[in-house]
């Protein structure tokens, strides 16, 4: 079943809110708040039926059908070497596009679309664990929490063909 909770905004929306500001779809993975640039997001989906793909890398959760297009689902928890979610937990997906292909990033929860100011942006702290620093494009300081900006390109560099950074 395909449930579209959010369509990519077609109007020049919050993405162009201000100079140097950036807009993100925020999500949580194992209690960590993360963000994906909204312009790269094509869809946000609820729980999906996912077909497993034998012999694929463990990070690849399988394929799903998004309105007639086959989308490869990546388990973000496994990709970030995080523990598996509790049994029966409903998961959501953020669909992103890379080189004409659609990928669904399986996350615990998709929250809201946020426009963040550049002056709250920081480079990765050097002490960030490797599995995070590899996929983080930087950190935003929010009130009370930190938001990790996920580098979608690197997240999707899975498998032999694209694995650039082993």
């Amino acid at each position: 079943m395909t449930t579209t909770l959010l369509e990519r905004p077609s109007l020049p929306g919050p993405a162009e809110a201000g100079d140097g500001d950036a807009t993100f779809v925020t999500l949580t993975v194992a209690d960590q708040l993360c963000g994906i640039p909204v312009l790269g997001v094509r869809d946000v989906l609820g729980e999906q039926t996912i077909t497993r793909i034998p012999l694929a890398s463990p990070e690849i959760a399988g394929s799903l059908n998004l309105r007639g297009r086959i989308v490869t689902a990546i388990d973000l928890r496994r990709r970030l070497s995080l523990p598996a979610p509790p049994d029966g937990a409903e998961r959501m997906s953020v669909v992103v596009e890379l080189a004409g292909e659609l990928y669904a990033l399986l996350v615990d929860q998709v929250s809201e679309v946020m426009t963040l100011q550049t002056n709250s942006f920081e480079q990765n702290p050097p002490t960030l664990p490797p599995q995070w620093s590899e996929f983080s494009a930087g950190i935003y300081r929010l009130q009370g929490r930190l938001l990790v900006v996920l580098d979608v390109g690197r997240l999707l560099s899975i498998g032999p063909l694209l694995r650039g950074r082993a």
Partner: peptide, 16 residues
């Protein structure tokens, strides 16, 4: 199949 799956030679494609 998606580029990240092309190395699996067992499959020639996928479908709905």
């Amino acid at each position: 199949v998606a580029p990240i799956l092309r190395h699996i030679t067992m499959f020639s494609g996928n479908t709905i």
